[in-house]
Design a protein around this nucleic acid. Sequence first.
DNA 1: AGGTTGATAAACCATTAGGTTGATTAGCAC
DNA 2: GTGCTAATCAACCTAATGGTTTATCAACCT
Lengths: 121, 121
Amino acid sequence: MDTGNDDDLLNAAFLALSDPVRRRLISRLSRGPATVNELAEPFAISKQAVSKHIQVLEQAQLVTRSRDAQRRPVHLNPARLEALTAWIDQYRLVREAQFRSLDAVLHSNAAHGGSSQKDRK
Amino acid sequence: MDTGNDDDLLNAAFLALSDPVRRRLISRLSRGPATVNELAEPFAISKQAVSKHIQVLEQAQLVTRSRDAQRRPVHLNPARLEALTAWIDQYRLVREAQFRSLDAVLHSNAAHGGSSQKDRK
DNA sequence: AGGTTGATAAACCATTAGGTTGATTAGCAC
DNA sequence: GTGCTAATCAACCTAATGGTTTATCAACCT
């Protein structure tokens, strides 16, 4: 599935962040690496479920893992978070142009065939 | 459903952006408002499917709609995109601290104030 | 060796997402 | 009125998600 192309990475990353549990995991990891058990502790779900969430984040490359004996600490990969803001910023930056377009549409109604002024609720 | 709280909005927004079709819709809308039919044209899926995608984006408040007779132009809501970057930036900005934490863990395992820190590397 | 701990794998269940097709509403033009 | 168009609704299907429970694996420690 993950062919590694840009689209797949964006799919995976945005999907990963669409779950509140995973967002809380990200939040927790921003304060330092942690193991699955440590991450699972504050949640009311099983460790297996948390492990799956970590895998989702890992596939999206939002986190990476290292080895420390039988522990496998998870740590954040801020570079991938930046890739997301980079994508969003493409469209965030057209903000003023967008507002101008909207304004043009709203004001062209009056000059748009005349009878479009009848508003029935 | 959408109770309107912050978490739900983030869920909906990130989920909305996790689909490549919807990202392309966002991209298209960044160049100005468009109707469902106009948006559906470049896609190989039905207009009903596109209409559903628009509803997903609308529920996430990433787009809004106005009325123009029987047309319902969709336009981008950059403010919501900014809310997403705002969330990500919370953790993107800890970047240097994060690298320092990782570095500390990798190089001096005992120095990490965690519980049960057994170094073996 | 046996035993415990951290973490995953496998099988399964309920819910949802993305897509289809067919029918329906709302508004304009005639 | 009839007809056309934009858009949605409704029912349905398939595949994926998020969760569980049970079992397994790997590494440590006596």
